[in-house]
Design a binder for these strands. Structure first.
Lengths: 169, 169
DNA sequence: TATTGTTATACTCTATAACTATA
DNA sequence: TATAGTTATAGAGTATAACAATA
């Protein structure tokens, strides 16, 4: 767990460093702390990892199913990794592969009934954790933060990242 | 989470619920995108990973050196992992272990001269990247963001990984 | 030939636990 | 006994590349 250790990455900022650098370290620190908490709780309480949870979240949004390639693109993970994750989830009967009528190379991935139920439970807990972890900010402050992040995001150069992330407005 | 007021409040809490979740996903998305960019550039341009860069940053702040245990605590990573990372960095002559006068069990870790130079170069590039990636926000907006993140951070319960060793401020 | 997905391999980071050598 | 650090092992996630089946 603890993918990117935040510790206090803010400590990395010396007095002589630029304000933007300090801001970035604070942004990273805050985010990592929340993410690690969620990751830890998902594992302790549900025995699931964040990528698996994310994959299930993708499927939950698309009741008709997604192909492996679609999942791969959405999660920004290479195909081989999707295979691995799906293999695990299928072994636990949370996800299933089913044939695609027009294309015998492809599969439709869907949540099983057990998967839907399990995800519903986890998603509920997940949202409660997020609410808890964001609660130091008032509703107004959260709106402000959202606006600032929107600016930061939309203006950002189109990089070629390699990590999952599921923004869905 | 004190949503036990009335129906009105509950509905509002429910709405905030999803707003907080969306906000969190946006926060995660923004941060991950920037981090991935930095990670990718560090690897492509300097052949170094983020944890190794972070470890060097820790040492750069402490010219007198740090013990393995100190680094472990600061980076919130278990001792065995620090050994692995330091082994790699030492193999590349960027970091060195030296004896601690009073305790023959411990080492002082310091940057080598080559390590200092390499880190200076990398840190400069790193900071430029951060400036670039944060630049969609004006100085004023960056200040606002810093304030909001400060509120978010200070009010948060510290995540306790595996080594609850207390750190020094 | 191109695409979909799998398999094989390797690397990094992580944790746990057993181990050594000091203290 | 306790502490500092190492070693050994395992697991997750990731990438790359070769491959099979199908288009």
């Amino acid at each position: 767990m603890n993918a990117r250790q935040s510790t206090d990455m803010e400590q990395r900022a010396h007095a002589d460093h630029h304000a933007s650098l300090r801001l970035w370290l604070r942004l990273l620190s805050c985010t990592t702390r929340i993410e690690d908490t969620i990751r830890q709780r998902l594992r302790e309480q549900f025995g699931i990892t964040l990528p698996r949870f994310d994959l299930m979240a993708q499927l939950e949004r698309e009741p008709d199913g997604l192909t492996m390639g679609e999942v791969s693109r959405r999660m920004m993970v290479t195909g081989g990794n999707v295979t691995t994750i799906v293999d695990q989830l299928e072994r636990e009967h949370l996800v299933q592969r089913s044939a695609v009528p027009g294309d015998r190379r492809a599969y439709h991935l869907t949540l099983t009934e057990a998967g839907r139920q399990a995800f519903a439970t986890m998603a509920q807990a997940h949202e409660a954790w997020v609410l808890e972890l964001m609660s130091p900010l008032s509703a107004k402050e959260q709106t402000q933060l959202g606006t600032l992040l929107g600016t930061l995001k939309t203006a950002q150069a189109p990089v070629a990242p390699q990590r999952p992330s599921q923004e869905k407005p």
